[in-house]
């Protein structure tokens, strides 16, 4: 199957996602990422995760690539739990659900930790969804379609390009060091420190040399830096992406769903932790139904 390289991996060339205009995908990320900040009810935030997984599957992304996010997701959970329990202080006013190594685990704090964690996870999933399905070019098209100044889009393009370049340089330097017997596996911190110095200096030195070459190449093709002051230029890339009625409808649906969430949250007092099924279940489990 032919694949397209995205920022985080690959998505099949025939992914149905490419029928959607890149601006809509950026808009989706920006708007839907707001939802977990507005929603406290864990089951609704879990629904956003399910939606993200569905969209990943719909886009034909290889879900095994998501394995790399398991450690980050777990470490976030651990960090939140640590902050809300062991490092959370002594609170006689809270209900002690159980004790572990002498530390009291308060019901109120566990509920808060679950609330925060179930808000963090969908945000991570949405970011992963966007980065696994968007090519660098999609981001540029979205920005240019939204009339972001050319110099900004060009800086972003070059920055993304240089990330790839530095990763390549980084692995070349690393291989060269390994070939000379420099292996950090199981070595001391001082050894690793020396190794890192051997990476970072060549990376900077290469960047300095490249800065001249890139600048020459850009100047030689007639680009003049005019700051944010725009010089009218054609945008050939945009001609290859049509913003269709369907894209307009999607933008409207996403916008309306944000309005809907705002109304339910602040107008009707819904989507809160207090009214959530998860809270009822936690209460039953951690408090044994005690009020």
């Amino acid at each position: 199957m032919k694949m397209n390289k995205t920022i985080l991996g690959y998505v099949p060339e025939e992914s149905p996602l490419y029928r959607i205009h890149p601006f809509v995908r950026v808009f989706f990320l920006l708007v839907v990422s707001l939802f977990p900040m507005l929603i406290n009810a864990p089951e609704w935030n879990l629904a956003i995760i399910v939606l993200a997984i569905f969209l990943l599957k719909y886009s034909r992304v290889n879900l095994s690539t998501l394995k790399i996010y398991v450690p980050v997701s777990l470490s976030m959970g651990f960090l939140i739990l640590l902050s809300h329990t062991v490092l959370g202080g002594i609170h006689p006013e809270f209900y002690v659900s159980f004790k572990l190594f002498g530390f009291p685990f308060y019901y109120e704090r566990i509920v808060a930790a679950v609330d925060v964690y179930t808000r963090v996870l969908p945000m991570i999933f949405l970011t992963v969804l966007f980065l696994s399905t968007s090519r660098e070019r999609d981001m540029l098209v979205a920005m240019r379609w939204a009339h972001v100044p050319f110099v900004v889009t060009y800086l972003v393009a070059m920055a993304l390009r240089s990330v790839g370049m530095v990763i390549e340089d980084f692995s070349i330097v690393r291989q060269a060091e390994k070939a000379r017997g420099f292996d950090p596996q199981g070595k001391s911190i001082a050894y690793k420190l020396r190794q890192f110095v051997m990476y970072i200096i060549p990376l900077f030195a290469l960047a300095l040399r490249r800065s001249d070459e890139f600048a020459n190449a850009i100047v030689a093709r007639g680009y003049s830096f005019t700051g944010l002051r725009e010089v009218k230029r054609p945008d050939y890339i945009l001609t290859q992406y049509r913003f269709r009625v369907r894209d307009g409808l999607l933008v409207a649906i996403i916008s309306l769903s944000l309005v809907g969430v705002l109304i339910i949250r602040f107008g009707l007092g819904g989507l809160t932790l207090e009214g959530s099924l998860t809270l009822q279940w936690l209460e039953l489990w951690l408090k044994g139904g005690a009020a």
């Binding site: 800086l155 070059m158 920055a159 370049m165 970072i200 900077f204 300095l208 800065s211 890139f214």
Partner: peptide, 18 residues
């Protein structure tokens, strides 16, 4: 300020990100 500065900014972003 010139193109060289745009380029060095992009390259710094690359190094920093990696």
């Amino acid at each position: 300020a010139g193109i060289i500065h745009i380029v060095i900014t992009a390259l710094l972003i690359g190094i920093g990100a990696v």
